[in-house]
Simulated scan of single mutants.
Amino acid sequence: MLSRTASSLYWIGRYVERAEFTSRLIEATLRLDALSARPAGQAAWESALLVTAADAGFAATGLPNEPQAVSGYLTLSPENPSSIRSCLDAARSNAKSVRTALTRDAWETINRAWLGLRGLATTGGYEETLRLIDMIRAETRGFEGALHRMLRNEAYAFIGLGAAIERADNTARLIDVKYHLLLPEGEKVGGVIDRDQWTTILHTVSANTAYRWLYRNGLKPWQVTEMLVLRPEMPRSLAGATDEIVSHLAFIGRRLGRQGEADRMARRRQATLSRTAIDSIFGQGLHEYLEGFVVENAQLDRAIAQQFRFG
């Protein structure tokens, strides 16, 4: 496989995963804002910008921190490189360059999602935004379904590898923003707003039911954190994403005969996570732990690019 082909497949996985995550984040934030007192709603939109690292770019626009302005920036803004429109533009561009490596279903889901945003200047009001987000989520879920029906070859593995790297980064940022920054000043930990926001996190990663299956004693922040960091059976957890990264790298290594620093880094992280307890994470500081994880994930991304000579 050519390096530029591998790179395009990897970034298709990253961009589609990012588009889906952002759509889930917008939906969850809309619902929290509709149900919460004003301070919680405003903090939720601020957190959505922070999670997607779009806070500085949004501030530069001079727009007010209001639901329609923030959701529009996260969904449609071509100036925001992490907006859903930007992600789908990039995913479609990469997909066009490797069209023969994708199934018809995989290509059509990306193309339909892109067409669904073409020509839109605004997300509209609450209901219109939710309908738009539902459309995007349906297409990104369709892409995931098409991916699972693909031949298990290098193309499949590079797309899955990119998606897993992106998923790990998104989940780490989501937990960090909630725990470190989100609760409004004067609100107590464990209060109504705090519980609403932890519930929003579970909704964003589609884990409400999974949490109830794993934990029987109600919503506890440390248990949400444990599930999303250390439980490998949770696909969007840091441990689950890391297991997937190790698996895809091992498969690619067997098929292409190319292993290196990326494999070693991923296996080290997998071994470390398997030995880690939630108490030790809180003991060293959750923010510091997650910040370190995000940095390490970026290093792993660079190691993958170097190992497979992405252009």
Rank of each mutant, 00 (worst) to 15 (best):
L9Y: 07
E17D: 03
R18G: 01
T22Y: 09
R24A: 05
R24H: 10
T29F: 06
D33H: 08
A44P: 01
W45Y: 12
E46G: 13
S47T: 12
A48W: 06
L49K: 11
D55Q: 06
G57H: 05
G57N: 05
F58C: 00
T61M: 00
L63V: 08
S71E: 00
Y73Q: 06
L74D: 04
E79F: 08
R92A: 11
S93F: 14
V98N: 02
A101T: 15
W107R: 03
L115S: 13
L120W: 06
T122Y: 05
G124F: 03
T129G: 02
I133V: 14
D134L: 08
R137S: 01
G145A: 09
M150I: 03
E154F: 11
E154C: 03
E154L: 05
L161H: 04
A164G: 00
I165S: 07
A168Y: 01
R173T: 02
I175M: 09
H180R: 14
L183K: 01
E185L: 15
E187Q: 14
K188V: 15
V192Y: 15
D196F: 15
W198T: 04
H203F: 15
G218R: 09
Q223I: 02
V224H: 04
A241H: 06
I245S: 10
I245W: 10
S247T: 07
S247V: 01
F251Q: 01
R267Q: 15
T272W: 09
S274R: 14
A277P: 00
D279C: 09
S280V: 11
I281A: 00
L290K: 07
L290S: 05
E291K: 15
E291D: 15
V295H: 11
R302E: 15
A303I: 10
